[in-house]
Design a protein around this nucleic acid. Structure first.
Length: 129
RNA sequence: AUAGCAGACUUAUCUUAUCGACUUGUUUUGCAAGUAGGAAAGUCCGGACACCAAAGAGUACGCAUAGCGGAUAACAUCCGUCCAACGUGAGUUGAGGACCAGUGCAACAGAAAGAAUGUACAGUUAGGCUGUAGUGAAACCAGGUAAACUCUAUGCGGUGCAAUGCCAUGUAUAUUAGAGCUUAAGAGUUACUCGCUCGAUUCUAAAGGGUAGGCAGAUAGAUUCUAAGAGUAAUUUUAGAACUAGAUAAAUGAUAAGACUAGACAGAAUUCGGCUUAUUAGUCUGCUUUUUCU
């Protein structure tokens, strides 16, 4: 699998984002938090993702940009965890809830944990249904 | 040489490898090219541009600016110059229009700083008036103060690209236009005057509203550099040359290794000229003080 992250794979629609925050469930692996929702979206990929960093925790735009780039990079290199295990289309948003910047290696491991948690959660919900 | 003053300029880590993002071009899932700032920041001034008769006209109020002259699209910016204060000096700073329009205010001293008339002495006919002394920067037809009200001169409508225009999708009446009927007093804006706008119901016609879906606006411009001319200068005229970040839940990156003087402040969002603030490493020019030598 190619580790790309194109426009189609990113969450763009304001309407979908609004629905996501209203109806979505969430999983946590500090300093990351994911809100997800099973729904149709605008592309053929298994999932669309977005990234957010609160202005409250990082006042400077430079720091927010840096963290968003790190998160995107971690997701890009591990997205097969998600893509290989989903039957239905999902959208999700990954937020950074820490107050300080983490190193890349540590963040990479946390991302792996977060994505695994997400997959387990999805399977659990499907089993219940 | 030392201490200092003023001004100008450069830089804003680099190289290689792997994996990616956005735009454009090829053309096909590849390839090529380009891809943050000097402050992109604060949003403090001034414009361009767009829309809004609830936008206009006059008065009042309010706000801003304030020696003089000039530059500019414009400015609270910039240049020149006078004056004042500070500094040995180079220079720095300036809330530097007007108290013969009115009102107010004034430490200490002093009887009193203006609805006052004291004390002592002298002059004069008593009352009273006049003069002198004493305090103070200033003692009555006087002066100071406008970072006091005020006056003068000049300028000022509002909202900001989520402006605005077009297309698509699409549901139901909250929209618009015209006509008929009833009412003509009232309401709205900016304090007032003028102006302007506004009702309920019926019928007819049209396509609005919402969804922030797409395209345009939106990246070449009061641009930068060089030369010559004008000007003390800011700046300007002419000629030549150069320059494409353009995203929109928002690209311009991540990791590894190496190098050096060991990398600061910090991320475009319609756009331009300034100001202010943050900050890395350095270079150059002019000048001043003190000391030494010729």
């Amino acid at each position: 699998m190619k580790h790309t992250l194109e426009k189609e794979e990113r969450l763009k629609s304001r309407k979908l984002i609004e629905r996501l925050y209203n109806d979505g469930n969430s999983v946590k692996a500090f300093p990351l938090r994911m809100v997800f929702l099973q729904t149709e979206h605008t592309s053929n990929f298994p999932a669309q993702m977005g990234v957010s960093v609160a202005k409250r925790n990082f006042k400077l735009a430079v720091h927010r940009n840096r963290i968003k780039r790190l998160i995107r990079e971690c997701y890009r290199l591990q997205k097969e965890i998600v893509y290989d295990n989903l039957d239905k289309p999902y959208i999700f948003m990954i937020s950074y809830i820490g107050k300080e910047e983490w190193k890349y290696d540590e963040l990479f491991l946390k991302m792996e944990k977060l994505l695994t948690l997400f997959i387990n959660e999805v399977k659990k919900i499907q089993d219940e249904v």
